[in-house]
Design a protein around this nucleic acid. Structure first.
Length: 729
DNA sequence: GAGCACTGC
């Protein structure tokens, strides 16, 4: 193993012509790093690095560098708890980069794209390295969908969880990495649960049979909350018991049914705790429970505003767009009547559906003598850090997606948050100075909250997660090491769905079709549709890719119009795009016409009341899907076909293949009922088929509010649905 | 004639 180390430090980059800094090696800036393998670093980069050094050294995690290195020399797994502001995400990879065992790349995962990119940029600065694909010499890079910024010498690679999962499908032993750092584990995305399960299997395989990898893979699990015990047990349970293992510990990978892990195995998992950097935040509860968060928030906003000096913005956590916009209006109304002596109030809404530009307003400093009031959803809990906040108002609720096994549909419900979410929200007041948190519930209500937010894997449709597992060779899904095991019915439902789609064989193994589906960035249903379209007898892959691309983006490609005038104008302008066959064919027409437009696509969008930004997104996905179809040998050429004949029937047949469960027929009383489950369902008003009475419909989305709506609808014939069922049997 | 927390490949 020791002989592997020097091999890696001979950079191929030295022999290559430099792209950006070519010819600068004679300049004083062309220095080498202490490790001697980073050629041609410019003086400016080194200056920045040296300036950042004292900042790094002041981070709470800095003194832990040596203990962390030591722990990973001894053991392969480290569970690290680091509170907000500890510096773990930027420092831990740097601590490990020059370790003797670290001959290859370090991967560090993030739940979100922005975090992966901005952390990579920061670490590059701190290391005095070029960044991404700027130069072959760059030692820090990132990989997110549509944007791979890594080079031949990338030593530290930030990537999204989804990206790492895709890599794991293609390289199960993770041979390009010396270490994998899984960050933000406490958020418990489905992807993180899968990654941890796969890593645990890898670690346990290594312990039993080291041949699968030349050098051990080091695993660091980083979390902001301290469920250290659970994570240690999770990994320890996978390790062989040195005392003879007659108790079946190896093969019953459960985190639930064992009281204590084998102490010897536990000893093989290192732990580390690092404090965060947080100002104190005072908590104030309501004396009496309330149901009217809007009114309570309004009162508190003005109470804080009158009582507390500037600066200090207010962040209000609410459930959704409607409530936010209502409160925004009320704050504006009441603020008008304020004494001129009092500073102004500026309410700013913040939710994901808000256009990017409007979201940016929260980062601009407040005008003179003005206090910002940010009215936000959960987005401000993790995804967006709002600067300048000293007061938090927390309504104690959030909207949660819940998958209902029996109905096979997901619905969005307002539910109480967990204690850990309440603590997270409160913490948002103490980032820059001591703060206050007003909870719109009583202390005893708080005491009654669940400790932790229910992990997503217990709440969602599992078909995609299980497809990923099967594609990675997990045949025994019920015995997969889940951090939290989903209920049996949820697993069975997902397995049935995959069987119906032909992703699994009758024995439950993954089929060729399933393997291809797993590699596509699509839900199983959409992936199946795409593969169906590639069949010679269907021959409509290009068309189906266009439709799927439009279905993959969130929101609509058509602009949502407010005034009656604009609505009518849009109806008129879009007439050439609308298809009587339904929304899917309408999407096809729109994507095709947009793609054909060569001169001014932006103007084309304005003429048709189509969102240009969304269409650019659609085109990105379309391009990626074409490339992937080529890689999967579904498509011989990435070029679009010539003028296409009418393929409507073939296209609809493909859609039915993936969405056979999402079909409904018109009943004698003029309501649609789903073919499976006999659920009442209505065509959503946003559909081109709204108000139409058709023999049967197929839809790609449920929206469950006060009614069950079918969105993205196509007209189908009942016998097509029946034939599809027969074909599957 | 409705209105959808948040991520991500």
């Amino acid at each position: 193993m020791s002989s592997a180390a020097p091999k890696q430090v001979k950079p191929r980059a030295e022999k290559r012509p430099e792209r950006k800094n070519g010819g600068r090696s004679t300049q004083p800036g062309g220095l080498r790093s202490p490790h001697g393998w980073q050629p041609h670093v410019s003086g400016a980069l080194l200056k920045k690095r040296d300036e950042l050094q004292p900042v790094r050294m002041a981070l709470p995690i800095w003194p832990q560098a040596e203990p962390i290195r030591h722990a990973l020399r001894r053991n392969n797994v480290l569970v690290l708890t680091g509170e907000t502001g500890s510096g773990k995400s930027t420092q831990v990879p740097q601590f490990l980069a020059s370790e003797p065992w670290c001959t290859k790349t370090i991967a560090i995962t993030q739940p979100r794209r922005v975090a992966a990119i901005s952390l990579a940029r920061r670490v590059a600065d701190e290391m005095g390295s070029l960044f991404g694909s700027q130069s072959p010499a760059a030692r820090v890079g990132y990989s997110v969908r549509f944007d791979n910024a890594t080079g031949p010498n990338t030593k530290i690679k930030f990537l999204t969880e989804g990206m790492l999962l895709q890599e794991m499908l293609r390289d199960p032993s993770m041979s390009q990495y010396s270490a994998v750092i899984v960050d933000e584990v406490h958020e418990r995305s489905v992807n993180v649960d899968l990654i941890l399960g796969f890593l645990r299997n890898l670690v346990s395989d290594m312990a039993r049979d080291g041949k699968k990898r030349k050098a051990p893979l080091k695993v660091v699990v980083m979390s902001a909350t301290a469920d250290v015990k659970g994570l240690v047990r999770f990994f320890a349970d996978g390790l062989p018991s040195p005392s003879g293992s007659a108790n079946g510990t190896l093969d019953v990978p459960s985190t639930q049914n064992k009281a204590e892990p084998n102490p010897l195995a536990t000893d093989q998992i290192s732990t580390c705790f690092v404090e965060g950097r947080q100002y104190p935040v005072k908590t104030i509860y309501l004396p009496q429970p309330t149901l009217d968060w809007t009114e309570s928030s309004l009162k508190l906003i003005f109470q804080i505003h009158y009582k507390e000096p500037l600066p200090g913005d207010i962040l209000v956590f609410l459930t959704g767009q409607e409530v936010i916009e209502g409160l925004e209006k009320l704050v504006n109304d009441y603020a008008e009547g304020m004494d001129k002596e009092i500073p102004k109030l500026l309410p700013l809404p913040l939710f994901a559906a808000l256009p990017q530009q409007a979201q940016q307003r929260i980062f601009q400093p407040a005008p003179y003598r003005t206090r910002k009031v940010i009215l936000a959803t959960n987005i401000a809990e993790t995804s967006v850090t709002v600067p300048g906040v000293r007061y938090v108002i927390d309504c104690g609720k959030s909207k949660v997606k819940q998958f209902r096994n029996k109905l096979g549909l997901e619905s969005l419900l307002v539910k109480p948050i967990s204690k850990s979410a309440a603590i997270q929200r409160k913490g948002r007041a103490g980032r820059e100075a001591p703060g206050q948190c007003y909870r719109l519930y009583t202390e005893s209500e708080y005491t009654g909250l669940e400790e932790r937010t229910v992990p997503e894997i217990l709440r969602c449709d599992l078909s995609q997660a299980i497809l990923t597992m099967k594609a990675r060779g997990v045949d025994d899904v019920p015995n997969f090491p889940f951090l939290d095991r989903p209920p049996r019915e949820a697993l069975e439902k997902a397995l049935m769905q995959l069987l119906n789609l032909g992703a699994l064989t009758e024995t439950g193994c993954i089929s060729d079709i399933g393997l291809k589906m797993a590699k596509l960035p699509l839900t199983p249903a959409l992936g199946r549709i795409l593969i169906e379209a590639a069949k010679p007898e269907r021959d409509c892959l290009h068309e189906v890719i266009d439709i799927i691309s439009a279905l993959s983006i969130d929101g609509s490609i058509f602009l949502n119009l407010v005034t009656e005038e604009r609505k009518e104008a849009a109806e008129e302008a879009r007439r050439e795009l609308y298809r009587r066959e339904g929304d899917h064919m309408t999407f096809l027409a729109t994507v095709q016409q947009y793609a054909e437009e060569q001169t001014d696509r932006k103007a084309w969008c304005e003429r048709h009341f189509v969102s240009h930004r969304t269409m650019q997104n659609v085109m990105n996905i379309r391009k990626q899907l074409r490339q992937q179809c080529q890689a999967l040998k579904l498509l011989s050429s990435p070029d679009p076909p010539g003028p296409s004949e009418n393929k409507t029937e073939a296209i609809i047949a493909c859609l039915i293949r993936g969405f056979i469960n999402n079909t409904a027929r018109l009943m004698p009383d003029n309501v649609y009922r789903t073919v499976i489950g006999n659920q009442k369902i209505s065509i959503h008003p946003s559909s081109v088929l709204f108000g139409r009475r058709l023999e049967a419909i197929l839809f790609s989305t449920f929206v469950f509010t006060n009614k069950t709506w079918a969105r993205d609808v196509s007209a189908v014939q009942l016998n097509w649905v029946e034939e599809a069922w027969d074909g599957m049997m």
